[in-house]
Structures are given as structure tokens and as C-alpha cells.
């Protein structure tokens, strides 16, 4: 395989991995706080349509990304009020949020279908961004670099800071955290809002990085892949980064292998398409076999918090 083709594959792979990385990173923080939000797909679609609309209207993809983050967070607040304040079932509410986001984005996006957009391109000088070799480092949208920064930031927050410790405590044992005076509900609100913002940015990657258009259902199920990825990564940011790129690699290699012809084409494409899910099931099995505290889910995941006193 030539170096040019390798670089081309890497660039496509990075693009394919970035939206699921954002969304999964947000969901990781949400789940670490003990909340299971299955509305990722809905929040991604909300972010995608708002990101498109604001970029289209203002011409600034930066504003589009910020707006997408706020839109995703706003959508997540619906979930937060229902599950955290009203203590409703998180699974049902999350699914409802996905349905809501799908419908809302379709309605809101009506005015924007059939309109092209410019991609959110690399901000490095063209000598670097379009250089045949250096583009593998400099040729990406700013969102890609931002996703790496966020991986480090989330790791640092969860592992090295006091707020991160509180967040994990809330996710592992909400009653204990409550009894020593931590605001469980407030922490979870913050986590859910962060998750929504990240899902919104992940959604905005679709019109800004991958395919510069808005069309209903644009994310085509990537929100579910992001949910699977959190489990795959065993709730660890660095493993999540690796997992996102592994999922992206599988999808990208499928297309490059098919386009190249040759030996890979004997693998049925349905098998390629199911690989992320198969990998997730495999990891779940492995987790179950060698259960230890580092690889299992936050203990309070999905349970409503109802303080006794």
C-alpha cells in the first residue's frame, strides 16, 4: 500500500471516528455520574441541524459548533428534568429523547434541506493543510483537534480533579455521596448537560466535516454506536479514544477494501457493518468473565436517585 493511500485512509478514518468520539465521550461522563441517557442519537441530530442552520445563516462554522453544543445541552435538559427532578425511568426517557430529537431536527431542518454548505476545513496554512504528506497532521477540521483535547480534558477531570472524584462518587454510590453532603442531582444535571453538548458537537460533525448537507436522519444511527462504544471502552477515556478509532477503522477499511477489490471483497459487507456491535458484545462478555471494579459499569448506572431524608 502506497504512502499516499495510507495517508488518504487515515484522513477518512479520522473523519469517520470524530463524531462518535465526541458523542461517546459525553455519554461516558453522563454514565460516570450514574445516569444512562439513551437519547444520544436524538441529541446528535439536534446538534447536527442547529449546527448546519447557524453555519448556513452566519457563514461561521465556529458559531455553528457553539450553537450545536448549546442545542445538544438544551435537548439533554428535557431528559434531565424528567429523570433527575421527576425521577422517571431513564431508559424510557432516553428513548423518548431520541424520538423527540429525530422529529425536532426533521421539523427544524425543513428549511435547510437541499442547501449546500462549505466544510469546516483545516485552519492551518494551505502549504501544511494540503501538503501531500504533512496533511496527515495538519489537514483536519479544527473539530478533530478539539476532540483530542476533550479526551485529555475528560480524563484529567475524572482522574485528577476533585469535581471528577465527586462525579464518580455520585455514580458509584449516590446515597453515600448525598449523606456526606454532595449535591447528587446538581452533579448529574451538569454531567447530562455536558453529555448533551458533546453529542451536539458530534452531530455537528456530520454537516461540517463529513457531508456538507442537512437531510433528515443525517446521523444514521451513529448515536447507538457511541452508546456501544462507552461500554466497549469500559468507561475509560483513553480506551474510548482507541475504541472510536477502531470502530472508525473497521468502517473505513470496509469501504477502501471494497473499492480496491481483491481478497477482502469475499467478506460479506453485512459482516463488516456488524463488526462494531460484535466487538461490543465480545467486550461485554470479557468484562463479565473477569469482573473487577476497574472494568465494570458505575454502580448506580440507570437508577433514579430518591433521597430518603
Amino acid at each position: 500500500m502506497s504512502i499516499e493511500l495510507t495517508i488518504a485512509i487515515i484522513i477518512t478514518l479520522v473523519g469517520a471516528s470524530t463524531p462518535i468520539l465526541f458523542a461517546a465521550l459525553g455519554e461516558l461522563v453522563v454514565e460516570k455520574s450514574g445516569v444512562l441517557n439513551l437519547g444520544v442519537e436524538g441529541m446528535m441530530l439536534t446538534g447536527a441541524v442547529v449546527g448546519f442552520a447557524v453555519t448556513f445563516e452566519t457563514g461561521s462554522p465556529w458559531l455553528g459548533v457553539v450553537a450545536a453544543a448549546f442545542a445538544g445541552a438544551a435537548a439533554s435538559m428535557i431528559f434531565a428534568v424528567v429523570t433527575l427532578t421527576l425521577s422517571a425511568n431513564q431508559v424510557a426517557t432516553g428513548l423518548a429523547l431520541t424520538i423527540f430529537g429525530t422529529g425536532f431536527s426533521a421539523l427544524f431542518g425543513k428549511a435547510y434541506t437541499g442547501k449546500p454548505l462549505a466544510l469546516f476545513r483545516s485552519v492551518f496554512p494551505p502549504e501544511l493543510a494540503t501538503h501531500p504528506y504533512l496533511k496527515v497532521i495538519f489537514g483536519y477540521s479544527p473539530l478533530v483537534y478539539f476532540s483530542f483535547i476533550m479526551v485529555v480534558a475528560v480524563w484529567w477531570l475524572l482522574r485528577r480533579t476533585r469535581p471528577g472524584l465527586i462525579l464518580r462518587a455520585v455514580g458509584e454510590n449516590d446515597l453515600s455521596a448525598h449523606s456526606i453532603g454532595y449535591p447528587v442531582i446538581a452533579v448529574r444535571y451538569a454531567a447530562v448537560a455536558f453529555g448533551g453538548a458533546m453529542a451536539g458537537i458530534g452531530g455537528a460533525c456530520f454537516p461540517l466535516v463529513l457531508t456538507p448537507q442537512w437531510v433528515e436522519g443525517l446521523t444514521a444511527g451513529r448515536g447507538w454506536i457511541a452508546l456501544a462504544l462507552v461500554v466497549f471502552a469500559a468507561w475509560r477515556p483513553y480506551r474510548l479514544l482507541a475504541g472510536a478509532y477502531l470502530f472508525g477503522l473497521v468502517g473505513t477499511m470496509e469501504l477502501y477494501a471494497k473499492a480496491a477489490g481483491g481478497p477482502f471483497r469475499i467478506l460479506p459487507s453485512e459482516l463488516w457493518a456488524s463488526m462494531p456491535y460484535l466487538a461490543t458484545i465480545l467486550v461485554l462478555v470479557l468484562i463479565s468473565i473477569r469482573r473487577n471494579s476497574n472494568t465494570s459499569a458505575p454502580a448506580c448506572l440507570g437508577k433514579p436517585f430518591v433521597p430518603t431524608s
Binding site: 485512509i9 457531508t211 443525517l218 473505513t252 471494497k258 473499492a259 480496491a260 453485512e270
Partner: peptide
């Protein structure tokens, strides 16, 4: 070169398929 994306609707995957083909 025929490449299937296994969906009637997945714009991001279609775009990636186009990238894979043009790169080759």
C-alpha cells in the same frame, strides 16, 4: 468499481465510500 454501502440512506457512509473510491 462497485461498492455497496448496505443502506438506502447513510449520507456519511456514502461520502466515505466516495472518498475511498477517489483515493484509489
Amino acid at each position: 468499481k462497485v461498492v455497496y454501502v448496505d443502506s438506502w440512506f447513510d449520507p456519511a457512509k456514502e461520502a466515505d465510500a466516495a472518498r475511498a473510491l477517489i483515493d484509489q
